[in-house]
């Protein structure tokens, strides 16, 4: 039996190493944060210093004046919300049907799903682009949203999870006269809530951070979502480093807040997630 905490030499050494690593790791983020609050003059004069002298909102002001930040934020939020809600619905519903119902061609359909899971995104990029262009969705937010409404891996994940629920839960619900959708709402969802949380978090994360799709499909500055807008914005000549970092900050911070709030879904569920 251990009484109190045993502090080992190894533990202390580990702690020191981790702290050093953590500081190195955080440094780029801290640099970004500090630089966003610096003035252009300060950046030019005190090149080797990293602390703002004085603290200023000049960068934010320039970004605000030079870029449609609210539009970008609106686009990003709308895209993230629609994709996340849709993926949650489609994954759980389709997963439920494959896990708990018998129907013709079930095996074949599921094999197809498994096979497409292995197809990397870069293969689909060109044909999807041509299809999107042909139906006239090019340069609309829909082009970024619609192909991402279902997630095959998450369907698979839900199916496996729902299969593992005990049959007795469903029998009890059936005895109470629950219909299919009621069963879905009152039996399936409450019992796979951690998985749902994890899928929601990581879907939102990858939608918010999605760069490839907007890069290919969106052209107008007002139609862009944050990551693409950011890379376009920083490429302009008149844009200062602090203004760029102010936009980076606005892009990064919402996700960090979401992460800190839903941390356990991110950390606990991570080993079921596929990048």
């Amino acid at each position: 039996m251990k009484i109190g905490r045993k502090i080992s030499v190894g533990g202390v050494v580990s702690f020191i190493f981790l702290t050093v690593f953590a500081v190195i790791f955080l440094f780029p983020m801290i640099w970004m944060f500090l630089t966003a609050f610096r003035t252009e003059l300060d950046l030019n004069v005190n090149g080797t210093s990293y602390v703002p002298r004085p603290w200023s909102l000049e960068g934010f002001q320039r970004a605000w004046e030079g870029a449609p930040l609210l539009t970008w934020a609106g686009n990003s939020i709308a895209m993230t919300a629609i994709i996340t809600v849709s993926v949650l619905f489609t994954s759980t519903l389709i997963g439920f049907v494959f896990a708990r119902y018998r129907f013709r061609m079930k095996k074949v359909l599921f094999m197809i799903i498994l096979a497409t899971m292995m197809v990397p995104g870069q293969i689909l990029m060109i044909p999807r682009f041509i299809m999107i262009q042909k139906v006239g969705l090019y340069n609309t937010l829909g082009a970024v949203i619609i192909p991402n409404l279902v997630s095959i891996y998450n369907i698979y994940l839900c199916k496996v999870n729902i299969e593992n629920l005990p049959e007795s839960l469903f029998d009890a619900a059936r005895l109470d006269g629950a219909g299919n959708f009621q069963m879905y709402r009152h039996v399936v969802i409450p019992n796979i809530l951690p998985t749902v949380g994890t899928i929601g978090c990581f879907t939102a994360l990858s939608a918010w951070n999605n760069y490839m799709d907007p890069l290919i499909y969106l052209n107008d500055i007002e139609k862009m979502t944050f990551p693409l807008a950011l890379s376009t914005f920083s490429g302009q000549h008149s844009v200062t480093i602090s203004a760029t970092m102010a936009v980076v900050l606005m892009n990064v911070v919402p996700m960090i807040i979401v992460f800190l709030v839903f941390q356990r879904y991110f950390i606990k569920g991570i080993n079921i997630v596929r990048r």
Partner: peptide, 18 residues
């Protein structure tokens, strides 16, 4: 864990820009 995970959370475009 949170500290080391932070760069995974932030958009790659943003961190690459940093």
């Amino acid at each position: 864990r949170v500290i080391f995970f932070l760069p995974c959370i932030a958009p790659t475009v943003g961190t690459a820009m940093i």
